[in-house]
Amino acid sequence: MELILEGIKKAFLLIFTFDPEVVGITLLSLQISGTATLISLVLGISVGATVALTQFSGRRFVVSLINTGMALPPVVVGLFVTISLWRNGPLGFMGLLYTPGAMILAQTVIATPIVTGISLAAIQQLPVKLQTQILALGATRFQMILILVKEAKLSLLAAVMAGFGGVISEVGASIMVGGNIKGYSRVLTTATVMETGRGNFDVAISLSIILMILAYLINLILTQIQQREKHR
């Protein structure tokens, strides 16, 4: 019990004194997961909207593939991204392994199916006749897709939350492809794993608290936007 209390006390000290290492790790986490989420939004919404709005053979299979992808274990993603980026691997020439870039790549692979699946469902939930109505208003097909995405924006915010939430808290892939290199590829989750292993519970607890606060704040902001939109 004393261990935990002592840990929490030290943790707050580290946070409120803006310990440079803790701040650095936090910023890097935000940067990597934020970038990965942004890329996955662009990819996921495009693919999700396309699949939602087109009929093609094998569509069911693609949809089930996307849904399976939503539950992709980060460790498996880490493994395959590591193999791909390995010196003799297909993407080895990029020299990305054990860099923040590799982490962004891995996190994008994790977040994209989540965003795709939610976007797909969100756009499919819109009334079918809405497409007819938009085209009848004189829209080109591209304008129609933009309007539909805009109409589904509340559900798409859920995609942002789920995608970001998934990657900021993910540890398996980050540690495998990033290597948890101090000051370079060490993020909140990988640092927590390491500090816990070393028995530095105070640091581990402080990192966990920051992680939880971050996740909470970002969801709070998005929820605020969502609720405001709803009541407008």
Partner: peptide
Amino acid sequence: AMILQEPLLFNTTVYKNVASGLKI
């Protein structure tokens, strides 16, 4: 112009709904 059974309005203000065809 076409008017369907459901109003199928966009999730925005009445003004912007009426303006939508012109904006398009």
